[in-house]
Structures are given as C-alpha cells and as structure tokens.
Design a protein around this nucleic acid. Structure first.
Lengths: 141, 141
DNA sequence: TCCTAAATTGGAATTATTCTTGATATTGGA
DNA sequence: TCCAATATCAAGAATAATTCCAATTTAGGA
C-alpha cells in the first residue's frame, strides 16, 4: 500500500497553521480524518468525533470541516450528487470510486505529467483546481 | 470555435433511440439542450422549455432529463455542490469552469492519450466513467 | 481580570431533488 | 378496432444535505 502521501501521523496536529485557532472540536475533527483515511462524509465524521466529544453538534462538524478546508489542511471531495466527503490527503490527486465495494481510492498523477499534455485547454487558461474522478471496478484478482 | 463535437443540428431529434418513447416534453427538453450548449441547470431548462410547453412541470423536466441521461443522449454534470447541469455533448470530455465569467467550457482530450499514461491506476482497475473538472481563469487577451 | 471577537450549539430554514398519487396517454395484442 | 397493460405526466408533499440564525460559551490580548 502506498503511504508516501500519508506521512503525517494520526496524532500530528496542525498547531502551526497560521490564523487558525485550534479548538478541541477542530482538533478532534482533524485527528479523526488523519486517523482513518477513508473519505468519510460529514455525518460519518460527526459519529466518529462524538466518541470523544459526545456533545459536538453536526453544525459544528460542518463548521470545522469548512475551516480546515479553507486552511488547506484537508480537502472536500464530491462524487455525483452524493454527500460531500473529506479527504486528508492534501497532495494533488484524483479519486477512483470502486463501484463494487464503494471504496474510494486516491489516484496519484504520474510524475512529470502536465495537464496540457493530454487536455485541449482553452488558450490562456490558468488552472487553479483540478478534480479527476474515475468510476469503475477492480478486476477480481 | 470547435464544432467538431456538435455536429447534430439543433433540430435533429433522437427518434431512433431504442426503447425511448419520444414524447413532446422529452423532445422539447432535448431540443432546448441541443439549441444552446451552455450547460443549463434543470431550472434553466424548465424556463426555456416553458416557452413552448407552458404547462410543463419542473418534475417532468427532471424526469425527462433523467430519461435522456439514461439513454445516453445527454450528460449530467456536477460542479462542487451546485445544481446539476446538463450537457448535450456526449463525447468523452472534461469541463473548464471559468471563475470569472461563470461559463463552462468543454475540454477535449488530446488524441491518442490514455488514462494510464498520466495516472497511477490501481492494478486491475476497469474504468467505466471519467470526470475531469478544472477551475480557473482565462487570462485577459 | 475584563472585553471583544470568534466559536459552538440546537434548531429552524433552505434548496435541489425525489417521491407519491391520480389522471392521462400510448402501445401491442386479441 | 378495442382493451388491457404500461408508461408518462403534473402537482404537491417529502426528503436529505447543508446553511443560517440567535443565544451562549470560550479564548486571547489589553
């Protein structure tokens, strides 16, 4: 399994993130996301966080997630019209949605590739964000 | 402007689509999408369709859009958590969302490129659907 | 310590979409 | 052609994810 992109430990906390007040709620939301990198929904995050912070509200989980996304500590990922999911891998990457298991796998770009190598970009386009989602199946092996 | 992918005229109708009963509502929804390829939402489609079918309901527009998507005549596209948009270009392509104008541009793949050329796919992955969305700006030219 | 701004909470509100139901229309077969 | 089975349509209700709101709590700096 590829751990290259997951080199922060589950307990590492983004204490040094400028302009971000690290409240217990935000800390726990972040910890939960780092501890299990399975792209949970806000609801799932809420369930997990409640184990340590039983009184935290779903609204707060949404607030925390939004704040962490805004500070670049996590990423929000959307598949079709489903609930948003949250991803602790902040490296640039895509996702593969396995239709059989429902699991979501991170997909790295091969080193050295450039968007313009395979896409007909409009002239003058300055790309700020890329979202690549693949859906399919894993052949039984 | 690239018209290669838009070679069906705005009036061509998918009469030959097997298993699809071409009702006036579906026909008009389809016509509207072919006539202006600007990725409208269901609501926008509803507004446009009402010019000719003043009594059509939004629910019917949703039904028609879903049916057309299921039959492969149009595509549904989602950006972030926004309303779904509908796309009359059924060729495989991505989208570029211009943050300045809000416009959505179709992005073609360069000929001959292969997904596996630039993505680290999991071994045995069989890809059934690809979604590529770029967000950014067009440099003033 | 006190003050102020920011964060949290619970519940209400919002919004896109889906569902339900009854009416209507269309099809294929007798 | 006529009938029965099936598909579609319309309207509004229902759903579900997310955001908003007002009140309370918390934390950091003067």
């Amino acid at each position: 399994m590829n751990h290259r992109l997951h080199d922060r430990s589950a307990n590492s906390l983004p204490e040094a993130c400028p302009g971000l007040r690290m409240t217990p709620q935000r800390q726990e939301v972040y910890r939960v996301l780092m501890g299990r990198r399975d792209h949970p929904t806000a609801n799932e995050v809420h369930s997990r966080v409640k184990k340590r912070l039983p009184n935290i509200s779903l609204a707060t989980v949404y607030n925390c997630l939004e704040t962490l996304v805004d500070h670049g500590l996590i990423r929000q990922v959307n598949f079709e019209r489903e609930s948003s999911r949250y991803c602790s891998n902040v490296n640039e990457h895509g996702h593969f949605h396995d239709a059989t298991s429902g699991a979501i796998h991170d997909i790295d770009f091969k080193p050295g590739v450039n968007l313009a190598d395979f896409l007909d970009l409009p002239p003058g386009a300055v790309i700020e964000d890329i979202e690549i989602t693949l859906r399919g199946k894993l052949a039984a092996s």
